[in-house]
């Protein structure tokens, strides 16, 4: 007997593929933001499902802060080569020089905010009208409010008080010249869904997601990898610990978690037992203020 129902992972997958095809159908120059992190790897996997045997109807774009984990970058390049698609990389470093931007200072000086300048510059350079990103609503309370098609003005700004209604599965991507739409196909996925999907689909990940030995310093109960990008003071103690990364952002603002999880099953078990959220555990940049993410989004951040 055939049953005509699907489990929730397949439902989420189908919804995401539908959204990606709407982007291809509605926009002239879309792009997919790809960092080599787990969420963007899932996005690329979904995009291949949506458009094979054709080429992807958009390039992959990475805004490189210069502070990335080398493991994530080499994985990014390896994946791009495997699938034979186009990758555009734009460096925050170049924007800093060109636009005379001031580098933030301090112990964990992060280029997180500067990333927006390079992103907007890249959008302008290639006249991208839609940028697909791997943000999820379960990550953060401002993200929990955002539409799947999120219209941004010329300055990339999000106006949370004036979002378009988004009804059924009908997406309105019409914009004026200069505006762009940020599209979030995996909005409705949770961290656990992403991991279960990675397992089901055997999606390969950079090794830093799995437990490995690393030199770190402990700062306000968070483990930060020793790297040329952070300032190590005399009273810092350099530890060697077995850790993994739950999210992969910049080395300056992503914390590791102590873990023995060497396989995807181990990680899923870890997450099921975890009492802290993904970003809460691993992102320093969200802790600036109560509305740190909302404020960054209003200024053009993804």
């Amino acid at each position: 007997m055939t049953t005509f129902s699907t489990d929730y992972l397949s439902q989420l997958e189908s919804e995401s593929i539908h959204i990606l095809r709407e982007v291809a159908g509605q926009f002239e120059r879309p792009a997919l933001l790809f960092s080599g992190g787990k969420d963007s790897l899932v996005l690329v996997h979904l995009a291949l499902k949506a458009f094979r045997p054709g080429k992807l109807p958009f390039p992959l774009v990475h805004i490189d802060t210069g502070h990335n984990f080398p493991e994530a970058l080499s994985f990014r390049d390896k994946r791009v080569e495997e699938i034979g698609e186009t990758l555009i990389v734009r460096n925050v470093e170049d924007t800093i020089i060109k636009q005379n931007l001031t580098e933030p200072k301090g112990k964990f000086a992060s280029r997180n905010a500067l990333q927006t300048f390079t992103l907007l510059e890249t959008i302008q350079e290639f006249e991208f009208d839609a940028c697909i990103g791997g943000a999820r609503r379960d990550e953060e309370k401002a993200r929990a409010k955002e539409r799947i098609f999120s219209v941004r003005d010329e300055f990339g700004q999000w106006d949370p008080k004036l979002q378009r209604p988004e009804l059924w599965n009908i997406y309105n991507g019409r914009i004026n010249k200069g505006e762009n739409v940020r599209v979030f196909p995996i909005s409705n996925w949770t961290e656990l869904d992403v991991w279960n999907y990675i397992k089901r689909e055997s999606i390969a990940l950079p090794e830093i997601y799995f437990a490995h030995q690393r030199s770190l310093i402990e700062y306000q109960n968070q483990l930060i990898a020793v790297s040329p990008f952070i300032q190590i003071d005399d009273d810092d103690v350099i530890l060697s610990k077995k850790v993994r990364y739950r999210t992969v952002g910049d080395m300056t603002c992503t914390a590791a978690v102590a873990s023995d999880a060497e396989t995807i099953d181990d990680i899923i078990r870890d997450i099921l037992g975890s009492r802290t959220s993904e970003r809460g555990e691993t992102r320093i940049d969200d802790k600036v203020s109560e509305a740190a993410m909302e404020d960054r989004k209003k200024n053009g951040y993804f």
Partner: peptide, 22 residues
């Protein structure tokens, strides 16, 4: 405040837009 995630919502103590929780 778990779902009223926007600054304006917190200030006014009302919900302005839909928040999704999982």
């Amino acid at each position: 405040l778990l779902t009223d995630g926007l600054r304006a919502e917190r200030e006014q103590g009302i919900t302005i837009d839909v928040a999704y929780k999982y």
